[in-house]
Write a protein that binds this DNA or RNA. Structure first.
Length: 867
RNA sequence: GCGGACGUGGUGGAAUAGGUAGACACAAGAGACUUAAAAUCUCUCGGAGGUUACUCCGUGCCGGUUCGAGUCCGGCCGUCCGCACCA
C-alpha cells in the first residue's frame, strides 16, 4: 500500500468533477430543489480560515443534499465593490478594477483547491456591469414605486481630504488618513424606504422557524417598535416675534405619567433650537457643546445630561395654570419620535438625572403595589415598575395600562390651535436606509440632475450607467465628481445640459439581491420568473453572525421591494439560516511587545521561542484570527501541506459549528492522521470483501448481522447529525465507525461469503458517509473498491430499521435513583420479568434494606426501585 | 443600563423526550514493534477510598420540583455577544 498522496488525488478528482460538470444545476421541476448558499466573500485577495469554515459547512450540506436526491443549487460570487479597492488604488497606484479582478482570480483558485461542489457557471461579481445594470433597473423600479427618497442626512466630513468617511474611518473624532478633526455635514442623500416595511419585517420574523432565535431577537430589537402617544403642547410664551411654533409636538410611551411632567425638552437640532440659534449666541454655543460630546460610545455613556432653558413655556394639557419650561437637551435625539419629549423625572432615569441637575420638580405618579403614598419617595433612582396611578386627578387608582388608554382617548378629542391635540402612534427605531456613498468603486446611481427638470431617471435604454475607467486617485475626494466628462450629460427629458448623480450605492445594496440573481445569473432582466419560482427561497443560508442585522434585514427589505415591483412573488428570501462561529488562535508577542506570526514560533521544552532569534515568546490569549494580531494561519499553506480533506475535516471536528473553533497544529495533525487511517482501512479491507455486484445471500448468519447492525446504525447516526448541521457529531460517529470497522476486519483472518458480502457493504457505506466532509479521499477509496462511477454523484445510503433495533434492551437498575446494576433483557420483556431479573442482582439485593414502596419502570431505559 | 447565550475531566466536546454523566477526539503516561526515529498497534486516563467485588463524591454556587436533575423552576456568581440617552 502506498502512502495516501493528497496532492495527486485531490487534483485528479477536482478536474474530474469539473469536466463532468456534475455540480452544475439546472431547473428541473420534476425534482425537488435545494438551494444552499454561503455568504459570498469580499475579494480581499486571499481566503482566510473563516472562509474555509463557512464554505466547507455549506459544501457538506450541498453534497449531502445532492446525495439525498435533491436538485442542488450551490453557487459562488464576489461582493466586489467597496473601499479597500480604492485604498489599494491610492496606495499602490493600481486601478480598483484591476486589483479586484486579480484578487478574484486568486481567491477563486484557492477556493477550488478546497474541492467545493460549486456551480461555477453561475459565478457573479457585483462590480461587473452585467450585474449592476440590473441593480440600477431595480432601483428605478423602486423609485417609481415610492420606495426611494432623497433627504438630508449627516455624514462624517474630512475637511483635509475633502471626503466623506465611513464611521469606522473616524477614529477618536479624527479622520483615519488625514488625522483632521471630522466635521458633521448635512448632504442630500438617497434613501431606500425600509421603514415602510417595518411592521412586516417584525411580523414575519415569526415565520422564520429555521432561523436562530438570537438573530430574530436582534432584528426585532433593531427595528424597535414602540407604541405610544404623540401630542401637542400649546405654547404660552415664546421669544419669537412671528407665530411659528405655536405648539411643541412630543412622543411618549408613558402618557400615564403625564401628571408627573416637569419639563419639556427638544433635541439640539430640533427646528426650535435652530430658529433660536439664529438670534441667540448662547444657544449657538450650547448646541456646539452638545455636538462636541459623544463621538465615541464611552463618551456618550458618561456624558452628563445638560440643558438650556429656552424661555419658551408650554401649557400642561390637564393641569390648570401649570406651565412647563422648554429646554434644549443633549440627551434628546432628533432622529427618534418628534425630536421632543416631556420629562417625568420620577419614572425615567434620564429625566431624573436632568431634573436633579436643574432642580426641577420630581412628582411620583405611579405607586408600587406594596408601597403607601405617605412612604413612597424617589431618591436617586426613577421607578419604572408596575403600580397604581396617584397624584393624577382623574387617573388616580388606575393601572398604568388603563391610564395610557384614558389619556390617549381624552387627547384625541381635545384641540390645540384648531388641531387634534394627540393621537396614538407607533414609532420604530429603524431608520430609512441611506444608500449614497461619495465614492468611485460602487454601483452608479442611475439618476440625472437637471436645473429645469430636477431629478430625472436615466432611461432604461441607457442602462447600465457604467463607471468610467479613466479615473485617478492622486487627489482626495470622489473621482467621479472631478472626472472631466463623465458627469456631463444631457437631460433625458429636456435635452439641456445636466449632471449625473456622482454618488454610488452602499455595497450592502449589491449583496441584498445576489441570492436571487444566482437563480438566473445570465438573464437580461434582474431575475427570471421561472428560475426564481423554482429555486427561491434559499433553503439553507450560512454565514457569520456579524451580518445578523444589516445584511439580512436589507435582503429581507429588498425581497419585499422586489415583490412590490413584480420581480419576485415571495417575501422571505432565506427560509433557513445558520450562523457559524469564528476561527480563533493563540496570540504571540516577543519581548518588545510585537505581535508574532504562529509560523515564527517554535516550542522547545514547553517554552515558546522565536524561530530565528530563539528569544522567548509570550503566549497571549486565544482570539479570533486577525491580521493585526498576526494570529493567522494561511489556508493555502495548510492545503499544500496536508491537503483539502484534512483542512475540511479539522474545521468540522470537535467544535459545534455555531461556536468559535480554536485552530491548533495538534488538531490538524490528528485530522491528517485520520485521513491516512481511512486510506489504510480501505486498503486493508479490500482483501476481505466480496466482488463488486455479488448478489446478496439469501440469509445472514449472526456474525454478518452484527456487521450489518454496525453499518446501519452508522448510517442513522451520521444522517441525523448532518440533517441537524451537527458536523462535529457526524465526525464523532465516523470515528466510532472507524473503530468498529477495524475490530471487524482485524479480529478475524478469514471470512465466509456471508461476511464478505456485508463487509463490502460496510466499507462502501463508510465511504459514502464521510464523503461530504472529505470528498477527495472518498472518491479515491470508492474507485479502489472497484467502482468506475463518481461517488459524488451516488445516492446517500438508507438505513433499514431491522438492523437499528436491538434484540435486547439494556435496562439500568436503580434503587432510590442510584444505579445498582444493569441487565440485558429481550425486547418484549414485561415489567415483572425485568423486576425478577433485577431482584437477583447481588448489588440490588444489598441496596434493598427496607420495604419497597413502589417501582418505576421506563421501558427500554430504567427500572427504579423506591424504598 | 437593557436584551440574549453559555458555564460538564488537563483540553475540545457528547449526553435527541427528565432516565448509565464524560461518547468521540486532543494532550499525557505505560507497553509492543524498530538498530533508532516516525508511523502503527495495545492498555491507563474526573476525584477519594479499597487487594478485588465495589463504595462515596462529582456537570459554576445556593435552594426547589421529581422515584430520578447536566437537562425543569427560583436566586446568586462568572464568561461571552448584541444594543445602548430610542422618550
Amino acid at each position: 500500500m502506498d502512502r495516501y498522496n493528497h496532492r495527486e488525488v485531490e487534483k485528479k478528482w477536482q478536474s474530474k468533477w469539473d469536466s463532468e460538470k456534475i455540480f452544475e444545476a439546472s431547473e428541473n421541476s420534476a425534482q425537488e430543489k435545494y438551494y444552499v448558499l454561503e455568504m459570498f466573500p469580499y475579494p480581499s485577495g486571499k481566503i482566510h480560515m473563516g472562509h474555509v469554515r463557512n464554505y466547507t459547512m455549506g459544501d457538506v450540506v450541498a453534497r449531502y443534499k445532492r446525495a439525498k436526491g435533491f436538485n442542488v443549487l450551490h453557487p459562488m460570487g464576489w461582493d466586489a465593490f467597496g473601499m479597500p479597492a480604492e485604498n489599494a488604488a491610492m496606495q499602490n497606484n493600481i486601478h480598483p478594477a484591476t486589483w479586484t479582478y486579480q484578487n478574484i482570480d486568486n481567491m477563486r483558485a484557492q477556493l477550488k483547491l478546497l474541492g467545493l461542489s460549486i456551480d461555477w457557471s453561475r459565478e457573479i461579481a457585483t462590480c461587473d456591469p452585467k450585474y449592476y445594470a440590473h441593480e440600477q433597473k431595480l432601483f428605478l423600479d423602486f423609485y417609481r414605486n415610492g420606495l426611494v427618497s432623497r433627504k438630508n442626512s449627516k455624514v462624517n466630513w474630512d475637511p483635509v481630504d475633502n471626503t466623506v468617511l465611513a464611521n469606522e474611518q473616524v477614529i477618536d473624532g479624527k479622520g483615519w488618513r488625514s488625522g483632521a478633526e471630522v466635521e458633521i455635514r448635512e448632504l442630500t442623500q438617497w434613501f431606500l424606504n425600509i421603514t415602510e416595511y417595518a411592521e412586516d419585517l417584525i411580523e414575519k420574523l415569526n415565520t422564520l422557524d429555521n432561523w436562530p432565535d438570537k438573530v430574530k431577537t436582534m432584528q426585532n430589537h433593531w427595528i424597535g417598535k414602540s407604541t405610544g402617544l404623540q401630542f401637542q403642547f400649546e405654547v404660552t410664551k415664546t421669544p419669537f416675534e412671528s407665530d411659528v411654533f405655536q405648539s411643541v409636538e412630543v412622543f411618549t410611551t408613558r402618557p400615564d405619567t403625564l401628571f408627573g411632567a416637569s419639563f419639556v425638552a427638544v433635541a439640539a437640532d430640533h427646528p426650535i433650537a435652530k430658529e433660536l440659534e439664529k438670534t441667540n449666541k448662547e444657544v449657538t454655543d450650547f448646541i456646539k457643546e452638545c455636538r462636541s460630546k459623544g463621538t465615541t460610545l464611552a463618551e456618550i455613556e458618561k456624558a452628563e445630561k445638560i440643558g438650556y432653558n429656552t424661555g419658551i413655556k408650554v401649557k400642561h394639557p390637564f393641569i390648570k395654570n401649570k406651565e412647563l419650561d422648554v429646554f434644549i437637551a443633549n440627551f434628546v435625539l432628533m432622529e427618534y419620535g418628534t425630536g421632543a419629549i416631556f420629562g417625568c423625572p420620577a419614572h425615567d432615569q434620564r429625566d431624573l438625572d436632568f431634573a436633579r441637575k436643574y432642580n426641577l420638580d420630581v412628582t411620583p405618579v405611579v405607586l408600587p403595589n406594596e408601597s403607601s403614598e405617605a412612604e413612597f419617595e424617589i431618591l436617586d433612582e426613577a421607578y419604572t415598575g408596575e403600580g397604581k396611578i396617584f397624584n393624577s386627578d382623574f387617573l388616580n387608582g388606575k393601572t398604568i395600562e388603563e391610564a395610557k388608554e384614558i389619556v390617549a382617548n381624552k387627547m384625541s378629542s381635545m384641540k390645540v390651535n384648531g388641531l387634534q391635540q394627540g393621537e396614538k402612534k407607533i414609532t420604530y427605531r429603524l431608520r430609512d436606509w441611506g444608500v449614497s456613498r461619495q465614492r468611485y468603486w460602487g454601483c452608479p446611481i442611475p439618476i440625472i440632475h437637471c436645473d429645469d427638470c430636477g431629478v430625472v431617471e436615466v432611461p432604461e435604454k441607457d442602462l447600465p450607467v457604467k463607471l468610467p475607467d479613466d479615473v485617478d486617485f492622486d487627489k482626495p475626494g470622489n473621482p467621479l465628481e472631478r472626472h472631466k466628462t463623465w458627469k456631463n450629460v444631457q437631460c433625458p427629458s429636456c435635452n439641456k445640459d445636466a449632471r449625473r448623480e456622482t454618488d454610488t450605492f452602499d455595497t450592502f445594496v449589491d449583496s441584498s439581491w445576489y441570492f436571487a440573481r444566482f437563480c438566473s445569473p445570465h438573464a437580461n432582466q434582474p431575475v427570471e420568473e421561472e428560475a426564481i419560482n423554482y429555486w427561491l427561497p434559499v433553503d439553507q443560508y450560512i454565514g457569520g453572525v456579524e451580518h445578523a442585522i444589516l445584511h439580512l434585514l436589507y435582503s429581507r427589505f429588498f425581497t419585499r421591494a422586489m415583490k412590490d415591483t413584480n420581480h419576485v412573488t415571495l417575501e422571505e428570501p432565506f427560509s433557513g439560516l445558520f450562523t457559524q462561529g469564528m476561527v480563533t488562535h493563540e496570540t504571540y508577542k516577543d519581548s518588545d511587545g510585537n505581535w508574532i506570526f504562529p509560523e515564527e514560533v517554535i516550542f522547545e521544552d514547553n517554552k515558546a521561542l522565536h524561530i530565528k532569534t530563539k528569544k522567548p515568546i509570550t503566549i497571549g490569549p486565544i482570539e479570533s484570527m486577525s491580521k493585526s494580531k498576526k494570529n493567522i494561519i494561511d489556508p493555502q499553506s495548510i492545503v499544500n501541506t496536508f491537503g483539502a480533506d484534512t483542512a475540511r475535516w479539522f474545521i468540522l471536528s470537535d467544535t459545534p459549528p455555531e461556536r468559535d473553533i480554536q485552530w491548533t497544529d495538534k488538531g490538524v495533525e490528528a485530522s491528517s492522521r485520520f485521513i491516512q487511517r481511512v486510506w489504510k482501512i480501505i486498503n486493508d479491507g479490500i482483501a476481505h470483501i466480496s466482488e463488486k455486484n455479488t448478489p446478496a445471500p439469501e440469509s445472514f448468519h449472526e456474525q454478518a448481522i452484527k456487521t450489518l447492525k454496525i453499518t446501519h446504525k452508522a448510517i442513522k447516526d451520521v444522517t441525523d447529525a448532518l440533517e441537524n448541521l451537527r458536523f462535529n457529531r457526524a465526525i464523532a460517529h465516523i470515528y466510532e465507525l472507524s473503530n468498529q470497522i477495524q475490530s471487524v476486519l482485524y479480529n478475524k483472518k478469514s471470512f465466509d461469503n456471508n461476511e464478505l458480502y456485508v463487509n463490502r457493504e460496510l466499507l462502501e457505506t463508510y465511504c459514502k458517509l464521510f464523503a461530504p466532509m472529505a470528498p477527495h479521499i472518498a472518491e479515491e477509496c470508492w474507485m479502489l473498491l472497484g467502482h468506475d462511477n463518481l461517488l459524488s454523484a451516488t445516492s446517500w445510503p438508507i438505513f433499514i430499521n431491522e438492523y437499528i433495533e436491538e434484540d435486547n434492551d439494556l435496562i439500568i437498575i436503580q434503587v432510590n435513583g442510584k444505579k445498582r446494576g444493569e441487565t440485558l433483557i429481550p425486547r418484549n420483556a414485561t415489567q415483572s420479568e425485568v423486576e425478577s431479573i433485577a431482584m437477583q442482582i447481588e448489588n440490588v439485593q444489598k441496596a434493598i434494606n427496607s420495604d419497597i414502596r413502589k417501582i418505576i419502570y421506563v421501558p427500554k431505559r430504567i427500572l427504579n426501585i423506591v424504598l
